[in-house]
């Protein structure tokens, strides 16, 4: 059998291509959910941390450090295989979504917080001197500038964690990689894996190039 017959077999590609395309849909939906909840939760924690309540901040720092230190796959496995022991069975999609959201939340909080703290104190003082209270100062003056500063690291971190959607294949989610692995065991041919690699490139190559562009454009990192 030639190389092309095994890695780019037209018959297998036609048969399993549609499943991979469906898998792309699942990957995009999962990624979208993770980005939405992860970034929102990260921003929420950073805002809470700005209130400066000591015990609350310790808790936030602990949670953030926890999900920065533990590998995402471990979190997914824990939620998927562990929670049923507590009588709470999650399906694979929800487990992966929750786990990756928590991880993105942690990294995003850290990045937002870095942006907030590195903003010069004068910004706070000037707005307070103009008569703005804490909330308007924070939301109208500090936060918009902080978010601008941290866009490049935030974009790159979000891309890296979004690629973690492939981990969902471990908990039986039929996203690209999961669909491809099923295809390989059905057809006993590696063509679905080739298609999967191409599908990931189609989705993530533009995103990686975008990340590079954002980095250059914002000049920070």
């Amino acid at each position: 059998m030639s190389f092309a017959d095994s890695f780019l077999n037209l018959r297998v590609a036609v048969e399993h291509g549609p499943k991979i395309i469906e898998g792309m849909g699942v990957t995009v939906v999962l990624a979208g959910c993770v980005i939405a909840t992860g970034l929102a939760a990260g921003l929420g924690l950073a805002v809470l941390r700005a209130l400066g309540v000591r015990p609350l901040n310790w808790l936030i720092i602990f949670v953030v450090d926890l999900f920065r230190a533990v590998p995402p796959l471990v979190v997914i496995v824990l939620l998927y295989f562990g929670l049923p022991a507590a009588g709470m069975a999650l399906n694979g999609f929800v487990a992966a979504w929750l786990a990756l959201s928590l991880v993105l939340m942690a990294f995003a909080e850290e990045i937002f917080w870095a942006g907030i703290t590195t903003l010069p104190k004068g910004q706070w003082e000037a707005s307070r001197a103009l008569g703005l209270r804490f909330a308007p100062t924070f939301f109208l003056v500090v936060l918009p500038q902080a978010v601008r500063i941290v866009i490049p690291p935030l974009v790159n971190r979000t891309i890296a964690i979004t690629k973690g959607t492939a981990l969902a294949s471990v908990v039986a989610v039929p996203e690209i990689l999961g669909a491809a692995q099923a295809g390989v065991s059905f057809s006993f041919n590696p063509t679905p894996l080739t298609l999967a690699a191409l599908a990931y490139l189609a989705l993530f190559l533009p995103v990686v190039v975008l990340g590079r562009w954002v980095e250059r454009r914002w000049h920070v990192r």
Partner: peptide, 14 residues
Amino acid sequence: ALPPLVLLVVVYAG
């Protein structure tokens, strides 16, 4: 652009 798990599976199973 390729997720590390995809690379790993392609190498191992492909």
